[in-house]
């Protein structure tokens, strides 16, 4: 490391608002907020040029906790809202923050199409394998035998594999992080934001209230033993055969991001009337 000639323009705290989170003490999402603020500070982005878009759920509360522009929308629809914003204002950095219920269940269809569309967004899903805000129901990533009031004895359903689905649907960047690794997650977020197109980052973020067993995740996670690949088939094989706790950048693709058709020179709306004239 060398001493930088100039002092950094930004501190992590510049990206944190004065609204205090209502998450449970112990929640992994605090770490994610910290990671995000460090990533943004490290990139020296102006807070007003960042938009954080979310849906509904514990994790989706995050926009108000940042000092960026935020949109806390409806359940499951953060991705299309963010896509509309990014297409309309391509110069902004647009981050979408979601959870496993919001992103993979009610918002599942948008996830597929956001990967396909490849708009230059960074999609962060804080995966705690449970609906926290509604008091502990199984989500698409919950283990089949996890007992709950809504699905006594477990759902019996095979968990959804977000990383493989992202890859198959065309996401241009796929990574898995663990919330407890604050700086590691921040470094991946920087890569994800910088990477053109749709970047998907799953952050394993324990729910200490409804999934106290997830406190053990810190002993289970381990960095991916190999470098990221740009071959989706190799990435898929790795992701499907790993233990679910392999962290790091797993795929870095090179598809061109979504570009809306654009006129070389915008014309006056009057020209549109010509073809109606009798």
């Amino acid at each position: 490391m060398s001493v930088t000639a100039e002092a950094p323009k930004r501190k992590a705290s510049d990206y944190i608002s004065d609204v205090k989170p209502v998450w449970c003490p112990g929640c992994g999402d605090y770490h994610v907020l910290l990671s995000l603020s460090r990533a943004l500070a490290q990139m020296e982005l102006e807070p007003e040029n960042i938009a954080v878009v979310s849906g509904i759920g514990c994790s989706s509360r995050i926009p108000a906790y940042t000092n960026c522009y935020g949109f806390h929308g409806v359940h499951g629809r953060a991705l299309p809202l963010a896509a509309g914003l990014k297409v309309a204002r391509p110069e902004l950095t647009v981050l979408v923050m979601s959870g496993d219920g919001d992103g993979f269940s009610i918002g599942g269809n948008h996830f597929l199409h956001a990967c396909r569309r490849n708009v230059d967004l960074t999609y962060v899903v804080m995966d705690n394998r449970v609906y926290g805000l509604t008091k502990g129901q199984p989500s698409p990533t919950t283990e089949p035998d996890w007992d709950s009031a809504l699905s006594p004895g477990g759902t019996g359903l095979r968990p959804f594999h977000p990383l493989v689905i992202a890859l198959a649907s065309g996401a241009n960047f796929v990574a898995r992080c663990f919330s407890g690794d604050v700086n590691g997650t921040a470094r991946v977020l920087i890569e994800a934001i910088r990477h053109p197109g749709f970047s998907f980052v799953e952050i394993l973020s324990p729910c200490v209230t409804f999934r106290p067993d997830e406190k053990q995740w810190k002993t289970l996670v381990h960095p991916a033993p190999v470098d990221p690949t740009d071959d989706p088939a190799r990435a898929a094989r790795r992701i499907m055969t790993d233990d679910g706790f392999n962290t790091g950048i797993l795929y870095r693709g090179n598809r061109s991001p979504y570009r809306a058709p654009a006129a070389s020179e915008p014309q006056d709306p009057g020209v549109l009337e010509r073809k109606f004239v009798i």
Partner: peptide
């Protein structure tokens, strides 16, 4: 932008308008 469904189309419009 062609959306994947009407839930997406209205939310895209909201996002774009939020952006001005």
């Amino acid at each position: 932008v062609q959306a994947e469904d009407e839930l997406a189309s209205i939310n895209m419009a909201i996002g774009a308008s939020f952006g001005g």
